[in-house]
Design a protein around this nucleic acid. Structure first.
Ligand code: ZN
Length: 412
DNA sequence: CGGATTTGACCAGCGC
DNA sequence: GCGCTGGTCAAATCCG
């Protein structure tokens, strides 16, 4: 029945995607050449430095971090001011500008006891932030929405529940739990993929304690079903874009990396190192640190990645490198198996995604998290990154143009 | 009425 | 063994 048709469509889509990617890569390559000459990406260095804080092990195979501009809860909101005030943004209506981040600690107190906090927090903190919707298109809402909703609910009482499954990354997710994380005021939500029956993929979303604007999403497992086109396209785009990015900004000085990255970028969503995508309405940057050896997945060329140099760091941790001194600053000490990190910015918010493979070591993850956290927390980073991205993107596509100022985004 | 979310309970791993 | 954390379950609830 429909299956056949479906299959067919899928194939077609796949093909299209492929073509698209190829073109994009090509474009990127060209761009890269241009950019190569100069450009530096130092910003990134700094940016990455952060300090690790949190968590110890998570299991997660992949993570997403979202930096949103939104803010939060009423009470919590006090935050301070920062430069980044969010604002503005355009479309995310809901987010509103609430603003800011920070100020979380108090909640801790509340929470300190342990479990129970759940509800309070939950209500108060919702997750806001925007998400990736654009990519996927309509449909995602839940997390954010809920958040928003929640937030609002206090005031307005809009619907508190989120409804349907969200499609953040093109998949549908059902929430099966929420818990408070020790150090942050914000609860962590657990979702399971519902696109396919047996899909083992789970994801957890959490807001960064330092910056509530940041959302970290961790994915665990691989989907056992085909991803929706939207997701695919996004992924590919992202990947492609990323490559550009890498080349341009990342440059840490070595071209090697870039190349590696590129290569990697090409790979389908699974593992790429860093990618930026310009195609979407908003710029997206993806960083992938891929890992090494992991069979789980399948096709990924193992060799691609290895960065021999210790110093590279920047966005990608290099995966295999035994001694990566610092990948994001300091943190990645282990060889990470980090699979990916992605940062995207949509109209007003930033998202950072990370992917890890199941086998990854927790420490790594940790690192990653820390790094992300740090990154996200650090305004400079954001700004820098954004800028870099934008420039790249702008150059590349031209369409989005997102420079720091343009989109509003982050702002500065 | 079916499906999704909420949320407290339950359980497993870890450190002391 | 105890307490703490993190993750999952499942009953209750909500919503379309
Ligand atoms: Zn799935």
């Amino acid at each position: 029945m429909m299956n056949g048709e479906n299959q067919r469509l899928r194939e077609v889509l796949s093909q299209v995607t492929k073509n698209y990617n190829a073109l994009q890569m090509h474009l990127l390559a060209l761009m890269r050449q241009q950019q190569n000459h100069g450009t530096e990406a130092n910003q990134q260095h700094e940016v990455f430095q952060g300090k690790p804080e949190e968590k110890k092990h998570e299991v997660v195979p992949r993570q997403f971090l979202d930096l949103g501009s939104s803010a939060e809860t009423d009470e919590m909101s006090h935050s301070s001011s920062d430069e980044r005030t969010l604002s503005a943004s355009p479309q995310t209506d809901m987010e509103t500008a609430s603003v800011k981040n920070n100020g979380n600690q108090q909640e801790n107190s509340i929470v300190k006891d342990g479990k129970k906090i759940g509800r309070e927090n939950s209500e108060s903190q919702g997750w806001n932030s925007s998400k990736v919707q654009q990519l996927n298109s309509p449909g995602n809402k839940s997390l954010d929405q809920s958040t928003e909703a929640t937030m609002r609910k206090t005031r307005v009482s809009v619907r508190a529940r989120s409804e349907a499954p969200m499609i953040t990354d093109g998949c549908q997710w059902r929430k099966y739990g929420q818990k408070m994380a020790k150090g942050n005021p914000c609860p962590r939500a657990y979702y399971r993929c519902t696109m396919a029956v047996g899909c083992p993929v789970r994801k957890q979303v959490q807001r960064c304690a330092d910056d509530r604007t940041i959302l970290i999403t961790t994915y665990e497992g691989n989907h056992n079903h085909p991803l929706p086109p939207a997701a695919m396209s996004m992924a590919s785009t992202t990947t492609a874009a990323a490559s550009m990015l890498l080349s341009g900004s990342m440059s840490s000085g070595d071209g090697l990396m870039n190349q590696n990255l590129l290569t990697r970028a090409i790979l389908p969503c699974s593992s790429s190192v860093a990618t930026i995508s310009a195609s979407a309405p908003f710029p997206t940057v993806t960083l992938d640190l891929t890992h090494n050896p992991n069979p789980l997945q399948v096709q990924r060329p193992p060799t691609l990645f290895q960065f021999p140099f210790p110093g590279q760091s920047q966005l990608f941790a290099s995966v295999t490198a035994p001694q990566l001194p610092q990948v994001f600053g300091q943190t990645l000490y282990n060889q990470s198996k980090f699979s990916g990190l992605q940062l995207s910015h949509e109209m007003g918010s930033w998202h950072l995604h990370q992917q890890l493979h199941p086998e990854q070591q927790p420490a790594l993850v940790d690192t990653v998290n820390a790094a992300t956290t740090a990154i996200t927390a650090d305004p400079n980073f954001t700004a820098a990154l954004a800028a870099a991205i934008s420039s790249i993107i702008g150059g590349a596509n031209g369409n989005t143009t997102t420079r720091s100022g343009n989109n509003t985004s982050n702002r500065n």
